[in-house]
Design a protein around this nucleic acid. Structure first.
Lengths: 245, 245
DNA sequence: CGTTCGCTGCGCACACTGTACGAAGCACGG
DNA sequence: CCGTGCTTCGTACAGTGTGCGCAGCGAACG
């Protein structure tokens, strides 16, 4: 009422050129969302908190992003841009594919929330960055002489996804405990030992691993499975001996 | 007051043997939770709804389950009980491992919410059912002569996880559209075609697939990657030719 | 030049979430 | 008979995603 009867003062009270921040844009929102996700994990990202980070109200974001799920899709493709697959020029397709897979793993471990999102939404995003990554990989396999590159992509990528998401989830659990990985494992051992008691093969596998550098273990584990897969693929190149079990 | 002053009628008014429902128990809660998850998906499971399904209040569940996350862990291990790995008695380790992997995939596709949970929490559950599944698989590889069965398990299981969760997420998306898989793909084609334009290898891969039975495609895709992995593993058995790229 | 119009940001509101807390009911041992 | 401990539940709180309608701004237009 009072404000309506007296419109004049607002002229003076008006904020002059309050465009300090580069305004709100889809790109800025996605970038900040990734920052929050990296820093505090997936359950810490709320529209209100994100809005506050951008000096904006929560619902303002909805002008640039249809829904939170869409924002997550954009964030996923954003970080997919960090995954690089070498160009198909070198003769060593194994090294190139290995580099591409390691890049996938490294990116997933750098942005551990990816594991959750991939589990919920899969790879059906069709985002441009995922597209160029896949295309590069297809070119790699095609240049190597594979008749059906997409088959090989699916195999290698599925392995990379499974191993990387499991690893990311594990590291998230570790991080939440506030301990180092080695300490966390040490603290978990009693429970684990009890769980595998009566399982002879598992128990011996556990014993063989106690006290070893965990990160190195994860690295070689990933490389092992990847090498196995690439060996299997190599057998499918034109001219190769049949494997025999 | 009135009830307290007149204790007699309550004997007759009392619900005789009101144990129609088997009361509230951890097992019953977990069972019902799985039912809800299967029927309506992971985002439809709320403690209130679950309580209502069991003729109980929402917070009553917390007497048997510490937190919702714990309930999810229990639900995961519950369905892990459906995954079967053959005993290590037959000579054909490839067939046995294939059966175990297919069982993993089938279970994941039967309970598609598993994909989300695995992405969030990994396989660090240590639940009994996961344990016996892993132990069986370890026995399989050990009997086949692998010096490090756990390495082989990690490789095969990672592949199965990656492919199955991706597939489950895809099927969830399809189901949410209310269309058949073939129709959904048809509706998606324009977008997909636009996305792969300029990516020659991907485009040709897409073209090769249009109009084919989608489920059969998924089946063979899974089998292909699994066979590749098993071929690579076979090379690591004592006595095998080196692969050459 | 003044006016209008569409786009952007925002406060409010709604329905819903997980769960901490304290009270009430019950079966059972003394 | 009275505790006593276990189970259930109502209430409450802090937080979520997001639909709706209003205010202000820049640009286009008469």
């Amino acid at each position: 009422m009072a404000a309506k009867a007296n419109p004049i003062p607002s002229v003076w009270a008006r904020q002059q050129r309050e465009t300090e921040q580069p305004a709100l844009s889809r790109a800025a929102i996605v970038r900040e969302a990734v920052a929050v996700l990296d820093a505090d994990g997936i359950e810490a990202l709320s529209m209100r908190k994100l809005g506050a980070r951008l000096n904006a109200g929560a619902t303002s974001l909805y002008r640039h992003v249809a829904t939170k799920d869409e924002l997550m899709e954009l964030a996923v493709d954003e970080v997919f841009g960090e995954m690089v697959a070498p160009l198909a020029d070198g003769p060593d397709w194994r090294a190139a594919v290995t580099a591409a897979a390691e890049s996938f793993r490294a990116t997933t471990l750098r942005h551990r929330w990816l594991a959750s999102v991939i589990g919920q939404a899969g790879l059906a995003y069709l985002g441009p960055n995922l597209m160029t990554y896949s295309e590069r990989m297809a070119a790699l396999f095609a240049a190597a002489g594979f008749p059906e590159p997409s088959r090989a992509i699916d195999a290698v990528l599925s392995y990379a996804i499974g191993m990387s998401t499991t690893e990311a989830a594990w590291l998230t659990t570790v991080a939440r405990s506030g301990q180092t990985e080695a300490d966390f494992i040490a603290g978990l051992m009693p429970t684990a030992q009890a769980a595998v008691s009566g399982s002879e093969h598992l128990a011996s596998a556990y014993d063989a691993v106690v006290g070893v550098d965990p990160q190195g273990l994860r690295d070689t584990k990933f490389r092992y499975g990847l090498d196995v897969m690439l060996d299997g693929l190599a057998l499918r190149l034109p001219g190769a001996a049949e494997p025999r079990a």
